[in-house]
């Protein structure tokens, strides 16, 4: 799959929802915990060596699962291979919760479900479709049928 690295690097410089230095260990056997600057930008998690400007890598946060790991860490795994886990170590339980919360809200699919939920609730209460004012009420991605997927 072809993609332009420069486009992703540009995205990694966009304002972050959350950024911190965390311990990070990849899914490969024998991987060791490394210090990484971890940045959440939209639905991508970028990780950097602490002395470099460009990211080492990025994880697209769609169809992923965020799990708490003892003592104060969490892991991210992806649905096509749940055994492959990216581990992260935080400084405190509090920081861990903050990251887990932000990562779980970071997927486009989560936003889509939220939007459909709010749209439906508002319509039930007011009898009006709140998306009409934006001119996007017809868009397929905002229809109730999309919820089931």
């Amino acid at each position: 799959m072809r993609y332009n690295e420069k486009e992703l690097q540009a995205l990694s410089r966009q304002p972050a929802e959350l950024a911190a230095e965390l311990g990070m260990r990849g899914p490969k056997k024998g991987s060791v915990l490394k210090r990484r600057l971890v940045k959440l930008v939209v639905n991508f998690l970028f990780y950097f060596r602490t002395d470099e400007a460009e990211p080492v890598g990025a994880l697209l946060l769609e169809r992923c699962r965020v799990t708490q790991e003892e003592p104060s860490g969490f892991s991210i795994s992806f649905m096509e291979d749940p055994e492959r886990k990216y581990h992260f170590e935080c400084c405190s339980e509090e920081q861990c919760q903050e990251w887990m919360g932000a990562l779980r809200r970071a997927s486009y699919e989560f936003m889509r479900r939220s939007l459909i939920f709010y749209r439906n609730e508002i319509q039930k209460m007011t009898g009006k479709d709140p998306l009409e004012q934006f001119g996007i009420s017809e868009e397929a991605r905002f229809q109730l049928g999309g919820l089931k997927a």
């Binding site: 690295e5 990211p55 890598g57 697209l60 769609e62 169809r63 992806f78 999309g146």
Partner: peptide, 23 residues
């Protein structure tokens, strides 16, 4: 591709997943 890593298999999996396509 270049030096930067991306979880490409997961990305491809998302591309083919049953969640709705927008266009």
């Amino acid at each position: 591709m270049g030096a930067m890593k991306l979880n490409e298999r997961s990305v491809a999996h998302y591309a083919l997943s049953d969640s709705p396509a927008d266009h």
